[in-house]
Amino acid sequence: MIQSIERALHILECIANAGGALRLQQIAEVTQLKATTAHNILKTLTALGYVRRRHSDTRYYLGDRILNLARIAGDDSGLRRRLRPRLEAMAEASGETVFLAVPSGDEVFFLDAIESPQTLRASSQQGERTPMEGSAIGLLFLAFMPMLRQQLLSLHASRIGPGIVGEVDRIAARGYALDEENYLPGVNAVAVPWLEDGELRAGFGVAGPSVRLSSSRLETLAALMTRLCQD
């Protein structure tokens, strides 16, 4: 076996078994590694996005990339069932097409959706996958998953321009994403994050014709959806 890989995986397992967070000294004690050795491995895991630190917190947490892998291997149907009542509430309140999406590798996967009953409406895209950059929900994921953003910027810099980077920064600051006919002509959308223990697990979106979803309506829906996510 390759010792460095074995030690790194042991550290990840220790953090997971402890509920998702451990301090350096605790990690060193459980893995029986020197603190300097454990720290060096954690630096590499942090750089790769498999562990992360939070502001003013000395503990190490499981990072975006490993949580994303866990979601891909996990129970999507369970998440869909658990969040369906919130999706239904958003559909009733907005009258537009609503959807639940999750990050899947470097793509957006549309896990669930309810189409608007109106004749002129946005399609649901349920079961489809789309690139992360461009759509409101994809930019939302990039804003709330820094390591995923860094990974995509390094791998696909040619298709992710400075305009997208600036918009991602604005989304992170205000807490939700807006799309006014950027992704699809004639269609506007808004997306808000679903967070658990401070980590993004999924995103909710509302999309519809731009003639109905004005800028002010999008802002109103953002506030409503955020409130439904917090109830």
Rank of each mutant, 00 (worst) to 15 (best):
130 T>S: 12
192 V>N: 08
165 V>P: 07
129 R>D: 02
113 A>R: 06
137 I>T: 14
164 I>L: 13
187 V>F: 03
192 V>M: 09
174 R>D: 01
115 E>N: 04
143 A>F: 05
149 R>Q: 12
136 A>H: 00
152 L>Q: 11
127 G>N: 09
171 I>L: 03
188 N>H: 13
122 A>R: 07
184 L>S: 14
138 G>D: 02
151 Q>N: 09
191 A>N: 07
177 A>Q: 02
105 G>N: 05
160 I>R: 00
109 F>C: 00
138 G>E: 01
150 Q>A: 15
141 F>N: 00
105 G>D: 07
181 E>I: 00
133 E>L: 09
133 E>H: 11
129 R>E: 01
112 D>K: 09
149 R>D: 09
145 M>P: 01
162 P>A: 12
119 T>S: 14
143 A>E: 00
172 A>E: 11
141 F>M: 15
123 S>C: 06
135 S>W: 03
145 M>E: 12
116 S>C: 08
136 A>Q: 06
157 A>N: 13
139 L>M: 14
171 I>P: 03
114 I>R: 05
192 V>K: 05
158 S>A: 15
191 A>R: 05
171 I>H: 05
146 P>Y: 08
126 Q>T: 15
106 D>I: 12
157 A>C: 07
185 P>G: 03
117 P>E: 14
157 A>H: 15
115 E>T: 14
129 R>L: 11
171 I>N: 01
129 R>V: 00
159 R>H: 09
126 Q>W: 02
122 A>I: 01
191 A>T: 05
164 I>S: 14
148 L>S: 08
183 Y>H: 13
165 V>Y: 00
163 G>P: 01
117 P>F: 09
122 A>W: 02
106 D>V: 13
146 P>L: 10
128 E>Q: 13
141 F>H: 00
135 S>F: 03
183 Y>D: 15
137 I>M: 12
157 A>V: 00
135 S>T: 14
108 V>P: 04
172 A>R: 15
119 T>E: 15
185 P>W: 02
131 P>Y: 05
127 G>W: 06
119 T>H: 09
174 R>A: 08
118 Q>G: 07
187 V>K: 02
157 A>F: 09
131 P>Q: 10
125 Q>M: 11
123 S>G: 11
187 V>G: 05
190 V>M: 06
141 F>T: 03
166 G>L: 10
140 L>F: 08
114 I>M: 11
132 M>R: 00
171 I>Y: 03
146 P>M: 07
170 R>E: 15
152 L>C: 14
152 L>Y: 05
